[in-house]
Amino acid sequence: MRKYIFLLMILVIGITVNAQGYKVIVNQSNSTSTLSEDEISKLFLKKNTKWADGKTVDPIDQVASSGVRKVFTDGVHKKSISAIKSYWQQAIFAGIGTPPLEKSDDDEVIKYVSQNAGAIGYVSASANTSGVKELKISR
C-alpha cells in the first residue's frame, strides 16, 4: 500500500512540475511583478513593446532544441515551436519584425537579463535565479 501511495505522490509531483516547468524572469530594476500568460506571449511575440515605465521590452528566447523552450511555448503561446517559428518567418518576410535573440541555456539567459534593464526571459523551474527578478504568472 505504501508503495502505491509513494508512486502516486511521484506522479502528482511530476504532473505539477510539468505544468509549470519554467520561470519567467526580468531585470531587478523592473517594477512589474505579475503578468498573465497572454501578456507574456504578447511580449515575446513583440506585440507589446513597452514596459509600464516606458522601457523597451527586450525578450530573450532559448534555442529551439532546449526542453524549457517547448514547455514555455506550449504553456504561454499555446502553440508548437514550429508554429512560432512560422510566425517569425512571416514577420521577417513581411518586414514587420524580427524574432527575439536566442540563448543556448538558462545561465546565458539569466546573465543577459541581469545586464539589460528591459529584458525578459524564461528559464527552467530548477534554475537559480539570484541576480534577476522572477515574475508571478497569473492565469
Binding site: 512560422s86 518567418q89 512571416q90 518576410f93 513581411a94 518586414g95
Partner: peptide
C-alpha cells in the same frame, strides 16, 4: 495588397 507582401511560398 498584403498578399503581395506575403507572396513567398512558405507563408
Amino acid at each position: 495588397s498584403p498578399s503581395n507582401l506575403y507572396y513567398y511560398a512558405p507563408l
